[in-house]
């Protein structure tokens, strides 16, 4: 660790790259989240029916069906053979996310992400203890439980409480008591558990993580030799267990962040003043040699 560790997160990046440079992917991500939401809202608000439906299933321009494959899977284990249009829609979504990274859905599309990001921002501001931290694999257990319950009850079980589709449907069709659900998630992430919902519990994220297990789009710590141990990437990363293997791996190990938990949010790229990270594809394991013969860091062998 260095003295830089105690700097406010991202201060150095802002000094070097400017505010916009240090928030590039965050802004792009917010733009993407708003974009996908507005696509769905243009119909009910302005009568421009580009996209009909919700995130669960939609029809774009009257021709392109898209279906949430996790909801479809629950329906199948619940005992329903879905029709072709839903299956095609599910397949399109499945293939897309298996290429660009399953959890890209979490960071770039999911409407709950801004809620939990806000909770985390406030959590950091108030310097709260990180609270209950169950294992990261908890969400996989929840995923398995949801599928078992769907099979036993013959329902799409997670849709009874899924805050993602509830919030989205609430915005597109009518909120009801969905605000309470959103507030509950916010408070859970703020007080009970840091990165609790998206990082530990949500089975939708777990599902998309599995979908993107071998996805092409990856963040690489190609320039890891330049790392100055400011720890800012660890501070902003919602799944910061994925960084270490790439950043502080043994010499010769891959610089790619290959964990399916990575959401490809790009905040590590934003917040790094020395540009250690960059987006690339999973076959590019090129490592930049240090310009300086003396490495700036002392990689720890694990």
């Amino acid at each position: 660790m260095s003295a830089r560790t105690h700097d406010p997160v991202g201060r150095e990046a802002i000094e070097v790259k400017g505010w916009f440079g240090a928030h590039r992917y965050l802004l792009l991500r917010r733009f993407s989240q708003v974009f996908f939401l507005v696509l769905f809202l243009l119909g009910p608000w302005l009568g421009l029916w580009i996209v009909q439906g919700t995130l669960a299933a939609s029809l774009t321009l009257g021709i392109l069906p898209l279906t949430d494959p996790f909801i479809l899977l629950q329906g199948v284990v619940g005992g329903h053979r879905a029709e072709l249009s839903a299956l095609i829609g599910g397949l399109i979504v499945l293939v897309s996310y298996s290429l660009i990274g399953g959890r890209v859905y979490c960071a770039w599309v999911c409407p709950i992400n801004p809620v939990t990001d806000a909770a985390n921002w406030l959590h950091r501001r108030l310097d709260l203890p990180k609270g209950w931290q169950p294992m990261r694999s908890t969400r996989l257990w929840v995923l398995a439980t949801v599928l078992i319950v769907s099979a036993l009850t013959g329902t799409i079980a997670w849709e009874v409480i899924n805050p993602i589709t509830m919030l989205h449907r609430g915005l597109v069709f009518g909120m009801g008591f969905v605000w309470m659900m959103v507030a509950a998630i916010f408070l859970f992430d703020l007080i009970v558990s840091r990165h609790g919902w998206c990082g530990h519990v949500c089975p939708v994220g777990a599902f998309y993580g599995l979908v993107g297990h071998k996805s092409l789009l990856r963040v690489s710590a190609a320039n890891r030799a330049a790392c100055n141990n400011c720890m800012d990437c660890y501070a902003v990363c919602p799944e910061n267990q994925v960084i270490s293997p790439a950043l502080t791996g043994k010499p010769g190990s891959t610089p790619l962040i290959l964990s399916p938990d990575c959401t490809n949010c790009g905040r590590c790229i934003d917040v790094c003043a020395v540009d250690v990270f960059a987006f690339t594809h999973r076959f590019n394991d090129h490592i930049n040699e240090p310009a300086d013969p003396i490495p700036a860091q002392n990689p720890q062998a694990t």
């Binding site: 919700t54 669960a56 279906t67 619940g78 013959g154 329902t155 799409i156 849709e159």
Partner: peptide
Amino acid sequence: LSACVRCGLCVR
């Protein structure tokens, strides 16, 4: 309830 994905396309 195992068939309806609650997308609202019928409503539209």
